[in-house]
């Protein structure tokens, strides 16, 4: 099949991705210091920086949600079980034999079924849980200090434990995610794509191409190289 270079990740998407990466790294680093795992900034500053980064993360999330719905990109993340076994087989066996990727990456379907499930889980489970437990963490004293007895939160324990647990999940995700970047067409093609926005992909069918064009998705810069 012929290949062309497509614009896969648009400017905001890349900005969102790298900003999110930076913030999650920083939040994890300062967060685990607050958790008592090590000392770097000092407890007081770690708390301060963690809070500032948390607000930045919140704003970024609001923009990202808007973007996802405005562009319809949210559909990319609807989980599917189609091809999931093939994808698993690929990671467990095929990849070692240089077998081809079982899922074709196109601008209309950037994610393989495993990615879809993982990112979907992140977006509707891990991130909401870590964000809401984080907000509770920051404001759980509010009812007490303002005499709102009915909403009194007696203990921080549940909030803190849930927040920590989701942090561990995110860190584990990042480790695996960082590695899986290298499993693209070449070792660096995924990374390059997320940096520049462009990636060489199989040509779309005529039908898909026109659909993509109406969505302003496929800016082919070089055809049939």
């Amino acid at each position: 099949m012929s290949k062309s270079i497509y614009k896969v990740y648009r400017a905001f998407e890349r900005f969102w991705h790298w900003m999110q990466a930076l913030l999650i790294f920083f939040l994890a680093f300062s967060g685990f210091e607050i958790h008592g795992a090590y000392s770097f900034f000092g407890f007081k500053d770690a708390v301060k920086y963690h809070s500032i980064a948390a607000y930045m993360f919140l704003i970024l999330i609001i923009f990202a949600i808007f973007w996802h719905f405005a562009t319809g990109e949210w559909k990319q993340y609807i989980p599917t079980f189609e091809n999931i076994k093939a994808q698993l087989n690929y990671y467990i066996f095929g990849i070692f034999k240089n077998s081809p990727h079982p899922t074709k990456k196109t601008v209309l379907s950037k994610l393989n079924p495993l990615q879809k499930i993982t990112y979907f889980g992140l977006k509707i489970m891990v991130i909401p849980v870590i964000v809401s437990s984080g907000l509770f963490y920051m404001f759980y004293r509010y009812p007490t200090s303002h005499g709102i007895q009915a909403m009194n939160i007696k203990s921080l324990e549940l909030i803190a434990v849930v927040h920590t647990l989701s942090a561990f999940l995110l860190v584990a995700f990042i480790i695996v995610h960082l590695y899986l970047i290298t499993t693209g067409e070449t070792v660096t093609s995924n990374l390059k794509a997320m940096l520049t926005g462009y990636e060489e992909l199989d040509n779309l069918t005529e039908e898909a191409n026109s659909a993509a064009r109406t969505l302003d998705l496929s800016t082919t810069i070089e055809e049939n190289r």
Binding site: I34, L156, E157, V161, L165, F168, I175, V176, L178
Partner: peptide, 26 residues
């Protein structure tokens, strides 16, 4: 519960194992 001092031992252990296994895995 006080941040920085307290932690849940099961969450701590499973969290660490999760990270260790992820690293070993990749």
């Amino acid at each position: 519960y006080m941040p920085g001092r307290d932690y849940s031992i099961p969450v701590e252990k499973s969290g660490l194992w999760l990270i260790v296994l992820s690293i070993i895995g990749v």
